[in-house]
């Protein structure tokens, strides 16, 4: 089964937000958990990026690519990049994979590849 990152669509106004907020940023009118859970699209364009060289303790790599991607539906997401030479504006495609491992857990998130 293909995995997704989910966004929250307000049942009152239809606004899609990611990440989760208890109160809809657009209409402020929803009751608790009054959202439909919708998968975020995986394709988009790279808005900005960095290669991080001073890594948090859980990461045993030399450098980590990180970026903000504007997805097809206009929502934005932060993710890891698996792209040799990233460029602002390039088309990218995401996969949901393990992005972090610590002693107890694996965390799933979006990793972007060149489209």
């Amino acid at each position: 089964m293909e995995m997704n990152i989910y966004a929250y669509k307000c049942k009152k106004c239809g606004h899609v937000q990611y990440p989760y907020r208890t109160i809809c940023r657009n209409c402020h009118k929803n009751e608790h958990n009054e959202f439909d859970i919708v998968p975020l699209p995986k394709s988009g364009k790279l808005l900005t990026y960095t290669n991080l060289y001073t890594l948090p303790p859980d990461f045993e790599v030399v450098t980590l690519g990180l970026g903000i991607v504007e997805l097809e539906d206009g929502n934005k997401i932060t993710g890891q990049l698996n792209i040799d030479k990233p460029k602002i504006g390039m088309k990218v495609k995401g996969k949901v994979e393990v992005v972090r491992r610590d002693e107890y857990n694996e965390y799933m998130g979006m990793i972007f590849y060149p489209a």
């Binding site: 990611y18 990440p19 989760y20 808005l47 900005t48 990026y49 960095t50 290669n51 991080l52 001073t54 890594l55 948090p56 859980d58 990461f59 980590l64 990180l66 970026g67 903000i68 997401i77 932060t78 993710g79 890891q80 602002i88 992005v99 972090r100 965390y107 998130g109």
Partner: peptide, 23 residues
């Protein structure tokens, strides 16, 4: 959930901000 798990730190947010600012 939307930043920390990816390995995002303050320097990395600043790096992404700087790149966009330069552009």
């Amino acid at each position: 959930l939307a930043e920390y798990i990816y390995g995002v730190t303050l320097p990395s947010l600043a790096g992404m901000f700087t790149r966009l600012y330069m552009e």
